[in-house]
Design a protein around this nucleic acid. Sequence first.
DNA 1: GAACGTCAGGAAAGGGCTTTCTTCGACTAC
DNA 2: GTAGTCGAAGAAAGCCCTTTCCTGACGTTC
Lengths: 339, 339
Amino acid sequence: MATLADVAKRAGVSAATASRVINGSAKPVTDELRDRVLRAVDELHYVPNAHAQGLARADRIAVGVIVHDVSDPYFAEITRGLQRVATEHGRLCIICNSYRDPDRELAYVDLLRAQQVAAIVLTGSGYHDLRFTRLLNAKLKAYERSGGRVAVIGRHKHAGDAVMPDNEQGGYLAAAELYRLGHQRVGVIAGPRILTTTTDRLTGIRRAAKEFGGSVPPRRVVYADFDRDSAAVATAELLDANPGLTAIAALNDAMAIGALATLRERSLTVPGDVSVIGFDDMPIARDVLPPLTTIRLGMPEMGMRAMTLALTPPASEPRIEHLPAELIRRASTAAPPAS
Amino acid sequence: MATLADVAKRAGVSAATASRVINGSAKPVTDELRDRVLRAVDELHYVPNAHAQGLARADRIAVGVIVHDVSDPYFAEITRGLQRVATEHGRLCIICNSYRDPDRELAYVDLLRAQQVAAIVLTGSGYHDLRFTRLLNAKLKAYERSGGRVAVIGRHKHAGDAVMPDNEQGGYLAAAELYRLGHQRVGVIAGPRILTTTTDRLTGIRRAAKEFGGSVPPRRVVYADFDRDSAAVATAELLDANPGLTAIAALNDAMAIGALATLRERSLTVPGDVSVIGFDDMPIARDVLPPLTTIRLGMPEMGMRAMTLALTPPASEPRIEHLPAELIRRASTAAPPAS
DNA sequence: GAACGTCAGGAAAGGGCTTTCTTCGACTAC
DNA sequence: GTAGTCGAAGAAAGCCCTTTCCTGACGTTC
């Protein structure tokens, strides 16, 4: 690989001059030398060594993002928002997939610190795991002390600024809609127990149940993995354990789609026999049949706000921004069958 | 930020010893010193500076991947395959989204070279753009000359090893299925004209048409952007221009879903009134109604093979591996209406 | 007890770049 | 003609780490 020294030698200038030309430094360089340097760069196909640049430069240019999985639509939308703002600020985004593995998450925080990122944005659910929470917070605090910025999305026990989607209210809105339509026996397909997102949404559902004089007994809650296939299986269990079920609330859209698949398999119509409500309003929600009634949280907005917080000088107090949940009515919900 | 020197000082050892402990070097260090170093690391929350490490270490550990958009299911699947193999080889993947912008693609090749990656994998369609192709090839050649490895997925004018999905054959299979079912007037929703993927798939469709004594006149081909919404609009145009249409072949599944949306809007049933066939067999294809008949190319497999090529010493000749296309029959296709 | 081998640990040389500080030459001003 | 300016280019320090090479202490061998 050609180095800056090679370029300088070929152009007959010093490394300093070559560097200045290549980086468009403020320092003036005569056109004559500039041309010679640029020609040398071209001829040698020179590209500066990013490691060396990173070492030599004082400013931290990159920002780090930890998500569950960028290819998951939920996180893809958040990431879109994050990237937009980062790019506007001239920052590069380093994106890490934790696949909801706490240990991997910890490792990625270190990796991002190692990369000298200016800020770390942590997205996705927190965990009910004290050891992990403590470890993570210690790491983040140390990072902040050394001048790094931290912003989190949807985590209670944050260390840093936060954007909080109102998961509890979303759960409430979903369940309230079902009760309002007249459903009494509502089943829930929940996500992994360990995630705070799951418990928050469940809490909202329970609040609605209580308010409408109902309840959500344990046999009407099944736990899946926030994905289609596990939810399809869970739906079967749910139906078997609760023959009289007239509505299903899935804690995300992917699981709602899994539920639809199982219902179709059993020749139960939606919403004729069973109503289904999802959560997140991912793009595909309108294209399944019937289009999903669901809860929108405004993911790109969340991403944009979080990155804005992360790239803004810290306030004296951690800033917390709340984002409301919104019910999106489509065709997968209706009144329960007459019987 | 704490540096290695800080750790060494705190532990009362030399930087060399600290480095050896931290990296688990082969060189032996007494337990006494090892403990002191590890304690210092802990107390200082030390993380090695990745830039400095990258500079000091000789071996290139990362590999680069350029895709259209990781959150696009098509590329998400390829990426899964790429990552799997990279991880098996102990490599880190740097993933770049080109968003099908040739200039961004060129810029990313430079960026990856700057990061000193051991290999670059280029995925996704090539472009009918001579200037770009030449520029890209020059860059890749220069990179290979300096010891870098290159592998491409689905690009004819490659510089390096290649994995080639059989897009032409896929187009043929899709159209042949429709003709076999008895359709005569088949409309096509194509992707961007500039992409070789579009033209390859179209070529296959035309071959099938010819073989079955039909043809695909220009008015039966509309061009969209490989996404749902543009395809929904394009479908409307297609239907308006061709009242007697009985089947639609979309060049990817997202566009097929867009077509389904427009057909539903116009109260045309699928496959009763119009058959629809997609391409790529993305996961959601089975969850729309009706489940999509489509063409599978085996994306994760493609990714795995490409990364394997990239991480394997080069052969004397560029290696090219072909992957067959496969028809997946579901419920969105049937014989044309009797009338 | 001299000569040697072994082994843990340290000194120091890079690795490629940016940037401050210096130098040098040309020019202006008196 | 000399002192003083200014501007462009170069020398060199520094960013932080890894690794080679070297030192010095200790143990072994005859």
